[in-house]
Design a protein around this nucleic acid. Sequence first.
DNA 1: TAAACGTATGAGCATTTGTTCATCTGTTAT
DNA 2: ATAACAGATGAACAAATGCTCATACGTTTA
Lengths: 115, 115
Amino acid sequence: MDETTEFLRAHQEQVARVREELPEDEVLYDLAELFKIFGDSTRVKLLYILSLGEMCVYDLAQLLGVTQSAVSHQLRALKASKLVRYRREGKTVFYALADGHVKTIMDQGLEHVGE
Amino acid sequence: MDETTEFLRAHQEQVARVREELPEDEVLYDLAELFKIFGDSTRVKLLYILSLGEMCVYDLAQLLGVTQSAVSHQLRALKASKLVRYRREGKTVFYALADGHVKTIMDQGLEHVGE
DNA sequence: TAAACGTATGAGCATTTGTTCATCTGTTAT
DNA sequence: ATAACAGATGAACAAATGCTCATACGTTTA
């Protein structure tokens, strides 16, 4: 076996090994979908606000400086990803983080960007 | 002060308090930009692969099932975000994760999606 | 029951994003 | 020197995304 062939074989071997260790495509797809949620400044801001406590839609819109409609649309996405929960109190709906993962993920991110 | 006024005042107070606790807009913007990177299945897959060890562009393209060009474009984004580092060895360039944050963030995410 | 209020949702539109194709740069081998 | 190879980059295009506007829904109050 010459050097070139040996080189190619080594590559193929590594590729094959990694392919085995890789999670299912679907899992990584879901992972990307999750992070997509955090990948928008309106939404991270929203999530950060909710990490400080529950809040109603109107106040969220005020804090974010966008339409009530826009917030509502975003909250819908967050609900779909099970990142927030909500409770109704009369005409008002209060949103809050669904669990601790969200804060942990944001904190790790903030550490990376140097905060 | 009637009930309605009191209700409004309480809202305003909470909004004001949260506004103070909120990080700079720029920080949250950077945070979103960081997560945007993870919010694409090609890129998370890429990052996951690199978490298993360094690898050259060609092999990455093979594993991801996309063009060499596409991988190169993505790696460029990852470099810009300081998520990967690289070293040249002859004609080949090997990429690897820049630091541990990346893996931590992905692991938290995987935990959330239930893996 | 009708008006008012907070929230949700669909349509439409402008922007952003990810990919491929073609081409260019840089390194090695003949 | 030049051909061959690994990777980088710009242009162009299709698809996805986030916003606003208009309107619908659910709850409360007059």
